[in-house]
Design a protein around this nucleic acid. Structure first.
Lengths: 220, 220
DNA sequence: TATTTTTTTTAGATTTACCTAAAAATTTAA
DNA sequence: TTAAATTTTTAGGTAAATCTAAAAAAAATA
């Protein structure tokens, strides 16, 4: 059984490892909002416990054990988010911080019963997949909106930024999960994107377009 | 905002203060499963923060601030217990430890919405009253079963022991909340108590009788 | 390839919540 | 009311997770 801090490190290393092979000390420090020196201490400890492989100056990779531990935390986080939105009527931009605390509650029975209570949801309010109790989940095939070409269309199925500010902004623009969109134009000058949703033409910045995930068509 | 440990101390001091004026170091140590020396350290800290009044060698009493903080934790604990039993189908003997973790989640919005989701329950699965969001709750008028005389009757409305072993035992005997009972006899030799529930005659030990709370009649 | 810059680690402190052992105060009992 | 027992506190230390400052290694650049 790990401490809250260890769990947070594992989760962050897991997410960073989705994009790079060797996860670097500085990257972890930034995510954990702590100093690189503190990270070095902790990754030694996590390596001792067999959660990660660590070579000095080379960064870390997750072991099978570490990955399983991280997936378990991610599962809990996402199930709690569904609970908060579906049952307690939280908005999708209000759930992150609370789920960040709830994910550390240690009880297998609790999480299995919660899963059942929620009807075994496959994805959370932000479109992220929820691992089942064996840690399995569909690797989702998302395209970033920014990568689409003029004329392309698809459905908003996820976001890669969970900050309240970002999500509130999307909400205001009507860009919520499940919405159909089509790329009308891309502005050369600032790279902003003209999109069509429900016959309405709107313009979103590159920064926003980067964090909207689209599934090519008709898919769930 | 207090640490988990501080919250646990506050809760325990609050409960101990229900029975005595000055809560003693040793009593706290026993409840916290720690050493008296550690308690001395912590009560100094809690006194510095204004949660308790502390006079060396004289024990502690709660301040208004401390009481409010403690009641808030108790409220959370009991609401989560209701959630676990009513929504997730936990048994009344399975909820204590999980609620012990959940009570430390810091979010006023969460607990208010949970309260609403549960229908603003007035008592938890063990019959303990749930403070409302202003910290108010009915001071319940319970009598311990052990204090009843032959011929007395009443309704089981609470228990003063939350251990799984005790609650499972009660369940097996059919002694659950809401059951009507009547005292038929008290055995001189071991002080055990003969009681009648639903026309069935059973014998319970003094130890068990001490922890069953009865409301005199018809009351909820 | 040598030098500069960046990244990472080490060394030594700090804070929180604990501990043990011993001293001090209080309470109980002779 | 003194002695014994109990309770509480103090003193000094430990482990976890953090920090700063400085040293070492790796990467980038001239």
């Amino acid at each position: 059984m790990q401490s809250f801090t260890e769990e947070n490190y594992l989760k962050i290393i897991y997410h960073l490892a989705e994009n790079t092979n060797n996860v670097q000390t500085n990257a972890i420090a930034e995510q954990m909002q702590t100093k690189p020196a503190s990270v070095t201490d902790m990754i030694k400890k996590l390596a001792d416990k067999g959660f990660i492989d660590y070579v000095k100056y080379q960064g870390v990779t997750m072991t099978e054990k570490g990955r399983n531990a991280a997936i378990d935390i991610v599962r809990k986080h996402r199930l709690w988010e569904v609970f908060l939105v579906d049952k307690l009527n939280f908005k999708w931009d209000e759930v992150h911080d609370v789920a960040e605390e709830l994910e550390h509650i240690k009880s297998t029975a609790l999480i299995e019963r919660l899963d059942e209570f929620l009807g075994f949801p496959k994805s959370d309010p932000h479109g992220d997949p929820i691992p089942d109790k064996n840690g399995r989940f569909a690797k989702t095939q998302f395209t970033k909106l920014i990568e689409l070409k003029i004329g392309d269309s698809g459905t908003i199925t996820g976001v890669s930024q969970h900050s309240s500010a970002f999500l509130k902004h999307l909400e205001k623009l009507g860009l919520t999960l499940g919405k159909q969109i089509q790329i009308n134009d891309v502005t050369d000058f600032d790279g902003s994107v003209e999109i069509l949703i429900l016959d309405k033409q709107i313009n979103i910045s590159r920064e926003v377009a980067k964090h909207i995930l689209i599934s090519s068509n008709g898919k769930n």
